[in-house]
Amino acid sequence: MTSPNGNGHSAPEHVLLRIKRQKAPGEPPYWESFRVPYEPGMNVISALMKIRLNPVTAEGRATTPVTWDSGCLEEVCGACSMRINGIPRQSCTALVDKLEQPIVLEPFSKFPVLRDLMVDRTPMFDALKRIKAWVPLDGTYALGPGDKMAPELQQIRYKYSECMTCGCCLEACPQYNNRSSFIGASAIGQAYLFNEHPTGRNLKGDRLDVMMGPGGVVDCGNAQNCVRVCPKHIPLTDAIAAIGGQVTVHAIKKMLRF
């Protein structure tokens, strides 16, 4: 089933997808296969759009369109993240030409499924609240300009600021699961980002309290999957080690001041 395309190479006429579906939260999952017409340069989202146009399984049975989440379509919002051939990544930048077929799509397994490929990533945002991932500026009067930041520090912090809370690092992490309360690599990266900020530093103690407790950085098992799958190439394991060091100092100080 091949036909010549513009490059003189032969391109497939169809793309085969196997999708793990689920009707509603808590319902049992089930699998369906789809065959959609191929287009040069298509990605997983455009394949899903084709299913939406014609929701019929590969066996020719009419079904409901597959639900997924997306926003930016340029890998900056993280909403479209799912497991593609077992790897957690964004479906908007997963090019069909580079994927082995059938392309297996599964929702993230570490978050509650809302429907089909769409999950609820609220736990990640709760984690950001727990670690106070912000710069405290609220007050009753103008505080004036903040401290200057060295360009070197800006460079380091910039990488961490790229985190889009997509959840790939958590999906890949063997320590992030329903048996542990581990907060996960993204929150550790953000704790580092704000601990290194000249004003954000004011909440460092609060963040490190979370990091040294149950579910904090101490629960990391150093498998380093997070850094391998992070689509933004954020040096998460650097942050984990750095926060590990900060926590050590913080804990010793705490123990000496009682």
């Binding site: 497991r83 077992g86 790897i87 890949a172 063997p174 320590q175 699961n177 048996r179 542990s180 581990f182 629960d219 098992g221 150093n222 498998a223 380093q224 999957n225 391998r228 799958v229």
Partner: peptide, 24 residues
């Protein structure tokens, strides 16, 4: 207790350090 909090996933993510984690 620590071992109980982990769920190894080398079948999907066969990276070196992930194997190191599981082997540990």
């Amino acid at each position: 207790v620590i071992a109980h909090t982990g769920v190894s996933n080398t079948s999907d993510l066969g990276y070196g350090r992930n194997w190191a984690y599981t082997l540990q």
